[in-house]
Design a protein around this nucleic acid. Sequence first.
DNA 1: CGCATGATTGAGTCTTTTCAATCGATGTGG
DNA 2: CCACATCGATTGAAAAGACTCAATCATGCG
Lengths: 226, 226
Amino acid sequence: MAATLPTRHGSSWLFGLHAPDSGLVDEGGYTRKAVKRAQSLFRSGSAFDALYTVDAGFFKSTILLEDGRSQVTGFHMAGDILGLDGIGTDRHAIDMIALEDSAVWIISHSRLAHPAMQRQLQRVMSRELVRDQGVMALLGTMRAEERLAAFLLNLSQRFLARGYSSTDFHLRMTREEIGSYLGLSLETVSRLFSRFQDDGYIAVQQKHILIHHIAGLSGLLHREGH
Amino acid sequence: MAATLPTRHGSSWLFGLHAPDSGLVDEGGYTRKAVKRAQSLFRSGSAFDALYTVDAGFFKSTILLEDGRSQVTGFHMAGDILGLDGIGTDRHAIDMIALEDSAVWIISHSRLAHPAMQRQLQRVMSRELVRDQGVMALLGTMRAEERLAAFLLNLSQRFLARGYSSTDFHLRMTREEIGSYLGLSLETVSRLFSRFQDDGYIAVQQKHILIHHIAGLSGLLHREGH
DNA sequence: CGCATGATTGAGTCTTTTCAATCGATGTGG
DNA sequence: CCACATCGATTGAAAAGACTCAATCATGCG
């Protein structure tokens, strides 16, 4: 894995290398690219020219509908692969925006050509396909309360998998972005955070989340009677 | 394309070959498999052992949530690739059910190993990823009326692309399955069909759909003010 | 320190769901 | 070939969930 996909591969700032204009830094055959908060890594319609893995920071992906509405379709953190949407048509279909100052590794074309990498990429895409179907199920069948509980539990798991606390973390996105992702209004998200807090499941203070009763949140998902 | 993916490749019944027990028929290096209405091509949790392309008929894919609820995540017709969800984990994540007596071509492992096929597969998966994000946007941002209009227009387009009428077709799925796919109750779907008919956009008679005013349906999607 | 952005909370409205009754089509067994 | 059973579709009425609009509050940045 680590041999083919450069995931959390190293820290280029240790070398004191910087190229502020392009945001590009070359290190041991890998190229690192910095993306400042609110900047895009790529945009819908732009030519597909590379895949990336998140080295540090946090991204959102958004899709723009013909009528001007847009929706957040995912949040991405260290180790996630970005840009897969561009392979099919050689143009990106989504916008990829950094939610905080971030950095990615560029996966070079030569590296992409490796058969081992191809196989791995296929697996990543397949899992992503399955993940998306899970989100579709969330949007199609769950009520607001369940959606937000599922969202928190998912974030919690992903932080845990990366060695961070699963019960004490900082949301990188706004209520509006959460709402967009979950198909809810930002007010509903805000109200539910307050309710979860009143019910003793979590403590919220703006973007800071403390999960007190993870089983309680899980319980919201497995309730009977739908 | 046609050289690597066996799409609508031939009609095995012309040869009079039949193997009713397994549903398998071998023909010129391709293997055709029949799937009767309501039967599954594969099920969630079962081992992944092949990819398929639809030769004839109609399928739905459904995902089962932990709490027992399930959701239709797609409808599939001639030429579509089935089974991509199994690549990532070597187990299928969804159920694939025939909505009418159908048949698929099995894409052999030897064929899958071809580099050209690998590249094509990658592209198919990427486009599928983008399609799923479109569905997520539909579920997240559209109102019931818009969802059903988008659904009809999508079906219409896909029939057209396959050489069938885009304005006169037979729905292979029930109102409940449409509702599940669109995140609506079956009653809402039924009511909307009636409303579209009253408004002169379509004529509905059970599963038979006649589209009278395709621009009218499109107009429902591009309305201002959300 | 003031302004802009994001978050919270309330009140009223609207869309969609749920529950229920009826109708229609399809297919099976007598 | 018909009666009946079953499954799917339609339609109505009431209820609930989520949204919109609006006002207020907090925070962080310049």
